[in-house]
Design a binder for these strands. Structure first.
Lengths: 186, 186
DNA sequence: TTGATATTTGAGTGATAACTCTAATTTGAA
DNA sequence: TTCAAATTAGAGTTATCACTCAAATATCAA
């Protein structure tokens, strides 16, 4: 992969893989489907990737990184900014968001490496949320911060999950609602 | 399927299907895997089911029904009771819960019938939650009730989703936290 | 322009998917 | 006990899966 043509082919393959996982799930992501979508023959695919797995892992890594953007800002986020970043991710990078959810559910079951990667990511993510809570509410105990962060991150993922089923689902509204206490006892 | 033997075989097949979808996802749920698990040969499987699809849909229907138990109690639930019922479902019927989440994400993408079924179920479920809110807080507007119910149901699904990844996840605690306002601005 | 190497072509491999079929066996109502 | 029908056995079919390979072609540094 030292010529321009190879890089372009690689990009087309990854784009196709992204789209396919998001739209058809891991089940529907076959070599044939990827190659058709990318307008590439199997030989070219295997010239650039060792296996289907490798292409999938590459895309999954992208997705995981995209969920937590702006890493140099770590340690300075507000909770609201983290939720807004998540809303942007879900609504504006919907292919990667689809990959993220597909992997969270089905991808980690038969693939220990993917599972580990995802769980590590989740922990980092919860810690980042907990950090924001700490900065905004320093008097809350560390335990409570973590638990609250964990509840929030899981709940946000639930909202993303529902968008997979119903693309018209108001991700932004429901996400902000969570943050703004829409679930407080009335 | 008029002899006892046939009924027992059918049960074993459905149990195997349930376990497989929950543990290995739809991808891992092959005829061979089902037959091995159920100790049945393909000929027997196809004597009792028209297709693999049929066995899966049967199990999915079970799962969807199990999420909303006690239907004759509809119209009398409290929000807390609905959340507790959901906690019981996730923690005590974990195979069906696994089926539920697997289908919510991957099952509905290539199967319009399953998708419709799931979305109808989701609507009923949101309406049931909204009904409970109405009874407990009659002065909240209908719109707000629905939105709140929708946020809550999605958030609860997010918690269930995370349990698929991490079986030690405290589903009960986080679910109750949602209900009790753990996410209110501090 | 040359030529070593990257890339593409596309038929082909073995494994496994869902599913079928016929013959053998088991069941239980009469 | 009999026997028609239900069930099981298990090899076989067709399609598709991930992946390979040798030959043809395109690329770009020198």
């Amino acid at each position: 992969m030292r010529y321009k043509a190879g890089l372009e082919t690689r990009d087309r393959i990854l784009e196709a893989t992204r789209r396919l996982i998001a739209e058809a799930g891991l089940e529907g992501t076959t070599i044939k489907a990827i190659c058709d979508q990318a307008e590439v023959l199997p030989g070219s695919f295997y010239n650039l990737f060792d296996s289907k797995e490798q292409a999938i892992v590459t895309v999954v890594r992208e997705a995981i990184e995209a969920v937590d953007p702006d890493p140099e800002h770590l340690g300075k986020d507000t909770l609201a900014a983290l939720v807004e970043a998540y809303i942007v991710f879900i609504t504006e990078q919907s292919d990667l968001a689809g990959v993220y959810i597909a992997i969270a559910v089905s991808g980690t079951r038969n693939n220990p490496e993917l599972r580990e990667r995802f769980l590590r990511h989740h922990e980092r993510r919860v810690a980042r949320f907990a950090g924001a809570i700490e900065r905004e509410h320093p008097r809350v105990e560390a335990d409570a911060r973590s638990r609250r962060a964990e509840t929030l991150v899981s709940a946000l993922n639930g909202i993303a999950l529902h968008r997979v089923l119903d693309p018209s689902f108001d991700v932004a509204g429901h996400s902000r609602a969570l943050l703004n206490g829409a679930l407080i006892p009335l």
